[in-house]
């Protein structure tokens, strides 16, 4: 198990974070932007779990915090989709750059 260097896990997390960031910045569909944000949170979770095994003082705290991140991500997704459905009822669009009612 110890033959895999820590940096390869961190590199994978960077790649996934960059894919998520690109998706969140370029996509126009609100659901896809939400999925991209979930991917970024997942990449952060990989880092937390990696440093709970590798590092100067490895312990279980990383596992605990990744569980907390999952709980917060689930709550965020539920509230965001509720907002999306409430918005869709008033204005039938799912494109995120047309949801600018508060701006005008």
């Amino acid at each position: 198990m110890s033959s895999i260097p820590a940096s390869s896990f961190l590199l994978l997390a960077i790649i996934l974070f960059c894919i998520g960031l690109y998706g969140a910045l370029t996509k126009r569909n609100t659901v896809v932007v939400l999925i991209s944000i979930e991917l970024m949170l997942n990449a952060a979770n990989i880092n937390l779990v990696t440093f709970s095994k590798y590092g100067l003082t490895p312990n279980l705290t990383g596992h605990i915090f990744s569980l907390f991140v999952m709980a917060v991500a689930a709550a965020e997704a539920a509230v965001a989709l509720a907002i999306l459905i409430a918005l869709y009822r008033n204005k039938p669009t799912i494109l995120i750059d047309e949801m600018d009612d508060l701006k005008h």
Binding site: M1, S2, I4, P5, A6, S7, L10, L11, I14, I15, F17, C18, S52, K53, Y54, G55, L56, P58, N59, L60
Partner: peptide, 18 residues
């Protein structure tokens, strides 16, 4: 991504059985 790669590339912690 490239800047972050240069940040994590020198990380060489050893895995420990926690």
């Amino acid at each position: 991504g490239i800047v972050s790669y240069f940040l994590v590339a020198p990380v060489d912690f050893v895995a420990e059985e926690i």
